[in-house]
Nucleic acid binder design. Structure first.
Length: 563
RNA sequence: UGGGGCGUCGUCAAGCGGUAAGACACAGGAUUUUGGUUCCUGCAUUCGGAGGUUCGAAUCCUCCCGCCCCAGCCA
């Protein structure tokens, strides 16, 4: 964790912990946990939970466990447990020796189920899934008791043992908690806590053919680990009654407090596992690590630094109201971090050739350019300047509007860290009228970029020397969706309808200053006046550099143009 | 229409009976060899609505309105 991390802001969970600490509620350190199900990749919404759980533990001298909630072998797999660990680690958190799996507790959880049966608080139900649904009633009508509800303890023990022994086919029986079929909270209408599922588990293999349900396994896993504060999202609020019921019914020593908070939503993005899978599987994006995806692997490849994500998670706060955070805040956090951490470098994305007519044919001079304007510690490099250069095509206009103060016929501008140049004439394609190259003159007195006579120039342009520049592909990313609320259409229009067709633009004729030839995969730079970019970790290689645009610089001129 | 939650600036979000923090966004201005950064300034007489209690209410009470979650042998 770095010093740039945001200082903690007030939130209700922090207050609960402070109160608990002051009341000496625990005779030990506080303990939280991040409990992902290994059935998909993590996204920035999970980052909020990870930062919350690990952050709170760190702040109050406690610890946070990483626990895989792997109770459903038919949807989970090892690939996900690995990617999840990689992502949590990348975010900057360390679970040390506290890596756990709910599956590690299967034997204990089974014993607890037996205890429940023996206390007359659970029974084996032989209704079909469909029948159970019918017996459950509706939101407004109570359910009715299963005909199996009054089986004897002996009968239940016999059946449950045989369930474990594999004597029944999948779905034949289910173990249910005996609570209240008339409860106004549907979760409490004798919920299933164990089902028969003949599926090979990624950790326990074929040892089990019955698996505990979330509501049974989660609270017990928390209890077994000694969790003090079990933080989860709002949709589990109704389940808290069951969480507490199970732990009370069993009379366990450790009864953690479940606390719910609102999950993160982001504008111009879609954060549900189901929708992200849809994007990946139908090829709308190139896999989970596509830089346009809000997955942790996507934003990592995009170049977002982990510090920026942590900062973002602190700034958005933690509360119970449903909310959608503006993507602009995330981008702000990314720029804030990159602004100070990143070396400045020059790259021309859409090259326009310019010839300096009064510059000697074969001359090259090397001009010193600092890597960071406000941090000399980052050092400098020398840039080659020669007769033929490239500048950004957008930096020239034949017929400039009022507020355009870059290069135009007859106008003088500065080339960053180099010279003042003046546009003398342009060469156009006679057929298309397209501008092919510019002819300029330079003022040798302005070497380095300052004019001895004090004359001012309105713009400074980035540039590269044509003979020295190296080529690269640059990928420009934009929001994946065209509307801030892709799944908010009143008429129910599918979110995929709003995919931004311009969310990815590949530029293949980019010219970069020679220094970049050695750029390592993953390294981040600011391309002056353009934005922050990083070397792609998948497609880039020494002979064919590929850069991803992480985020643009704020752009006053772009704003003016929009008006 | 049952139960559980939530409603404070465009977006997040503090506030917990003493008279509306902060951030992002937005709008001006200063500085600037990045139209970047930095720095100033502005931006809720009002807290979903209506009543009530109180010297005093976003905070307490009542009623109303709106939004979210729950009827998986998913988590």
């Amino acid at each position: 964790m770095t010093s740039t991390d945001q200082s903690p802001s007030a939130n209700f969970i922090r207050y609960i912990i402070i109160d608990d600490l002051q009341a000496h509620k625990y005779d030990r350190q506080i303990m939280t946990r991040f409990p992902p199900e290994p059935n998909g990749y993590l996204h920035i919404g999970h980052a909020k939970s990870i930062c919350l759980n690990f952050g709170l533990a760190a702040e109050f001298a406690g610890v946070c466990n990483l626990r895989f909630d792997d109770t459903n072998p038919s949807r989970e797999n090892i690939e996900y447990v690995e990617s999840i660990q990689e992502d949590v680690r990348w975010l900057g958190f360390d679970w040390e020796n506290r890596l756990h799996y709910a599956s590690d507790y299967f034997e204990q959880i089974y014993d607890y189920a037996v205890q429940l049966i023996q206390k007359g608080k659970a029974y084996v139900c032989s209704l079909s899934a469909d029948e159970i649904r019918q017996y459950r009633g509706t939101l407004t009508e109570p359910g009715k008791d299963s005909p199996c509800r009054n089986r004897t303890v002996e009968e239940n023990m016999d059946l449950f043992t045989r369930m474990r022994n594999g004597e029944f086919p999948d779905g034949a029986h289910v173990l249910r908690a005996k609570i209240d079929m008339a409860s106004s909270n549907v979760v409490m209408r004798d919920p299933a806590i164990y089902r028969i599922r003949r599926a090979s588990h990624h950790r326990t293999g074929d040892k089990w053919c019955i698996y505990p349900m979330y509501d049974f396994a989660h609270c017990l896993s928390d209890s077994i680990e000694g969790i003090t504060h079990s933080i989860c999202t709002l949709e589990f609020e109704n389940n808290r009654a069951l969480y507490d019921w199970v732990l009370d019914a069993l009379g366990v020593a450790c009864h953690p407090q479940q606390i719910e908070f609102a999950r993160l939503n982001l504008t111009y993005a879609v954060l549900s596992k189901r929708k992200m899978i849809e994007l990946v599987e139908n090829g709308y994006v190139n896999g989970w690590s596509d830089p346009r995806m809000p997955s942790i692997s996507g934003i990592r490849r995009r170049g977002y630094p982990p510090e920026a994500i942590r900062n973002f998670c602190e700034r958005i706060g933690v509360a119970k109201r449903d909310s959608t955070v503006d993507m602009a805040l995330l981008e702000h956090c990314v720029r804030e971090n990159l602004n100070e951490s990143t070396p400045r470098v020059m790259a021309v994305l859409n090259p326009l050739r310019i010839v300096i007519d009064n510059y000697p044919e074969d001359q090259v001079e090397w001009l010193e350019a600092p890597y960071h304007p406000d941090n000399q510690q980052m050092g400098s490099r020398n840039l080659p300047f020669s007769r033929v250069l490239y500048i950004e095509a957008d930096d020239f206009m034949e017929d400039p509007p009022k507020k355009f103060y870059r290069l135009a016929p007859g106008r003088e501008v500065r080339l960053r860290y180099a010279f003042y140049i003046k546009c003398e004439r342009m060469i156009k394609d006679e057929q298309t009228g397209e501008i092919q190259e510019l002819h300029c003159t330079y003022d040798p007195e302005t070497r380095g970029g300052g004019a001895p006579d004090g004359r001012k120039v309105k713009a400074t342009l980035h540039w590269v020397s044509a003979d020295h520049a190296i080529g690269a592909e640059v990928r420009l990313y934009d929001h994946l969706f065209t509307r801030p609320d892709p799944d908010g259409a009143k008429d129910g229009t599918d979110f995929k309808t709003f995919i931004n067709p311009d969310s990815l633009k590949k530029l293949t004729a980019c010219r970069l200053e020679p220094e970049l030839a050695n750029a390592a995969p993953g390294s981040r730079y600011q391309f002056e006046r353009l934005g922050y970019f990083c070397v792609d970790t998948v497609d880039s290689c020494e002979t064919a550099l590929v850069f991803n645009r992480t985020v643009t610089l704020k752009d006053e001129w772009a704003k003016i143009q929009k008006k």
